[in-house]
Design a protein around this nucleic acid. Structure first.
Length: 467
RNA sequence: GUGGUUUUAGCUCAGUUGGUUAGAGCGCCUGAUUGUGGUUCAGGAGGUCGUGGGUUCGAGCCCCAUAUUCCACCCCA
């Protein structure tokens, strides 16, 4: 067999032992906070049926779904079905469903909605679930953008209360602070406010075009936004009316006041403002800070599905896309036939958070995660001598290993060195005769004599002391 | 999907207008130390120059295609 060049698909990554320690630290920190707020973990399959996913993420999103080719003779099967249908010409639109019926998970929200509908008889509403799993997008990779990445989602379905939204603000604050981030902004907006604005200028059908354009304010400036609005069907007069909203500044309170003034004639818009106000009030009633919560009217992500609150989290310490986002869907499960169930949720982008923590050097030192004790291996006799001692240490909860072959001691100590193992127990003929083992401290280079029976006590004390 | 960029030893990277045998640092292996690492010293191995075509007497260098890296758009975690 020809040897092939080892490689992994574009936008995917291997994770080394060191990276996994750090990644698990992030996952564990976020998980702990989710649990603390009453969320329970579920998992869903890597693959979903293709029709479960298509049409849920907009045209752009559908293109980014990784499709799985049918197994078996997919081509013969496709032709067979095509004949039944009277042999129309193949097009990319008809060929796809004929050769692919499964796809990789694109996010965690849609599979969750599917889950809720499938298990509606087994769950109690409101249902609060969290999920930490990889998702896949056939995007072009770049900084902070991967084709396989992990999301940490928490959603609650079946509760209209804005208390949920407020708690999500707290969850963001708590989880990100626990991870050591100091300066981040939780941006919040409301779809109803955007609808209200579009309504006021008499172009409710252009709400998406409007928000996509004003979302770019900090990137292209007012002139750029104006240009884009004109291209998207707005008039100069519309833009004049939009200007005060686009250029909204000041504290959350003053932004809200200004919006109220603009939206007086829009019932929807005022409802959105009332929701926003209540969420902020809840947050402060929790005696939590609102200084890193920012009302941002230009925030428009996920507009295809969000109906109420919209969240986005950005770190201000390093340049990076958003590290989290979320919002409310009034009809989360409707697409799967269960009407009238509202849902709201948030997501943490673990891979981006990793990149941020890495750049800010915020990962904690944790030395105890490697092997604590290595038994040297001089020969078969010494190896046999070491095994009961090894078992004893492990039964005491001390992670230990024996070098698996009688290699030169130099090599064995080099192994301990590379793996940052703090102690090596040397067992040779001398030690076996006297029962006094040589314990080498790899940091200081010092060697102590320890009785074989005392060995576990010796390490229990030293490792407990955090060496 | 659009535009640009990267690829040379295990790793990070040099490599002149196209010209003999493609280099460095680190790592690795061996020895100084037949039971002592991390430091030091001496020596050694390791390269289809991303891949496939082309131009040329001659290509790491020029041309085309393709993959890959990173970046900016679109969009998004």
């Amino acid at each position: 067999m020809a040897t092939i060049k080892p490689a992994i698909p574009k936008g995917t990554r291997d994770f080394s032992p060191e990276e996994m320690v750090k990644r698990n630290y992030i996952f564990d920190t976020i998980r702990t906070v989710f649990k603390k707020y009453g969320y329970q973990e579920i998992q869903t399959p890597t693959m979903e049926n293709l029709d479960t996913l298509t049409g849920k993420y907009g045209d752009e999103g559908d293109k980014l779904i990784f499709k799985v080719l049918n197994s078996g003779d997919f081509w013969a099967e496709a032709e067979r079905r095509n004949q039944k249908a009277g042999n129309p010409e193949w097009s990319s639109k008809t060929l796809l469903p004929a050769v692919s019926e499964k796809a990789l998970r694109y996010d965690l929200t849609v599979p969750f909605a599917r889950y809720v509908v499938m298990h509606q008889n087994d769950i109690t509403l409101p249902f609060k679930r969290f999920q930490v799993q990889p998702v896949w997008r056939a995007d072009r990779p770049q900084k902070g953008r991967y084709r396989e990445f992990y999301q940490c989602d928490a959603d609650v379905v079946g509760s209209e209360s804005l208390l949920n939204e407020a708690e999500f603000v707290l969850i963001y604050q708590e989880a990100l602070s626990n991870l050591g981030l100091k300066d981040f902004t939780i941006k919040i907006n409301n779809r109803k406010i955007l609808s209200g604005i579009a309504e006021i200028i008499g172009k409710p059908e252009l709400i998406v075009d409007m928000t996509v354009a004003i979302d770019k304010l900090d990137k292209v400036g007012l002139n750029g936004v104006t240009k884009e609005l004109l291209e998207r069907g707005f008039t100069e007069a519309d833009i004049e009316r939009l200007k005060p909203v686009i250029l909204l500044e000041g504290t959350n309170g003053s932004k809200i006041d200004q919006l109220k003034a603009v939206l007086t004639s829009s019932e929807t818009g005022l409802k959105g403002i009332a929701e926003l106000e209540l969420i902020l009030e809840y947050v402060s009633l929790f005696e939590s800070q609102t200084s890193n919560v920012e009302v941002d009217i230009t925030l428009a992500r996920g507009l295809n599905y969000y109906t109420g609150a919209i969240f986005e989290v950005k770190t201000n310490e390093v340049p990076m896309g958003s590290i989290g986002g979320g919002g409310r869907y009034d009809d989360l499960t409707g697409m799967f036939g269960l009407k009238g169930l509202t849902g709201v949720g948030i997501s943490f982008g673990a891979d981006r958070i990793y990149d941020v923590l890495q750049e800010l050097d915020l990962f904690p030192e944790r030395t105890s995660l490697t092997t604590q004790v290595l038994f040297s291996n001089f020969d078969t006799e010494a190896e046999k001598f070491a095994l009961p001692l090894l078992r004893k240490l492990r039964s005491e909860g001390i992670s230990a290993e024996v070098y698996p072959s009688p290699a030169r001691l130099k090599k064995q100590l080099g192994y301990a060195d590379d793996k940052k193992i703090p102690y090596v127990v040397l067992i040779g003929s001398e030690e076996m005769q006297s029962g006094l083992l040589s314990v080498k401290n790899m940091k200081t280079g010092e060697q102590a004599k320890v009785r074989a029976e005392q060995l576990f006590m010796y390490f229990k004390q030293t490792t407990d002391a955090g060496v």
